[in-house]
Amino acid sequence: MSAVKKIFVVEQLRRVQMSDLLARGTRLDGRGLSDFRELTITTNVIEKAEGSCRVKLGNTELIAGVKVNLGTPFPDTPDKGLLVVSAEVLPLASPYAEPGPPDENTIELARVADRGIRESGMIDVSKLVLVEGKHVYAVFVDVSILNVDGNLFDATSYAVVSSLMTAKIPKYVLDDKGQPSKTDEMVSLPIQTIPVSVTQARIGDHLIVDPTSEEEALMESRITLVSDDKGNLCAGQKGMPGSLTTDQVLQAASTAKLKGEEIRSIIKKAVYNG
């Protein structure tokens, strides 16, 4: 059951202006319909985290940290390490955010980000096992949203991916008694692919990528699609109480692949040269 949702209000005149612009193939900030805002990724911003990054996507800002410890695997996957992604919109991030337990939007955000990482097989969780059924690495990625200006889905996903790529985790070995002990050696996580999330909003008959808060206030439906290195789609989520035609879904899928490659190279550059 949802409580009252606070709504980001856009004036009628502004709405008219925005839809006029969309009809001409452009947007309030001058972008084309399939242009992302500037994406800046700064890595290793938190020394105490095993991996971290700060992501700015236009005015949307967030920070992600990776913490790793040893844990016990789930009974149904004794041969796999743990990977948990969670996200939180901090109360300082927006006048509409409030402290308290996560609401359904935040839960959806975290679950969709998690789905993209998990289903793409970005991390080879079978390599995160020390003793099958007993000791596995538990990788936690926590994303804190610092400033909200739309497209939290993509920004969160980029933050998770970048922080996992930069993470250096302590290597554990088994001692004589078969107990795991921490060594000083630091290793990278077993990365197999770089999943990239691309979210598109439908306003009228237009699909636009990377919507701002203002554009999100106008959107009727939203579709997030995550693609991997090979161009496979590996996660998706339609959102908002509106619909999409099947043609729009197919269009969204091809845009997601195309823009995904673009973003992937930005992420790679930021992580490997940063």
Partner: peptide, 9 residues
């Protein structure tokens, strides 16, 4: 529309 898992185009 939701998608869990890998599909090519």
């Amino acid at each position: 529309l939701q998608l869990d898992g890998q599909l090519n185009e």
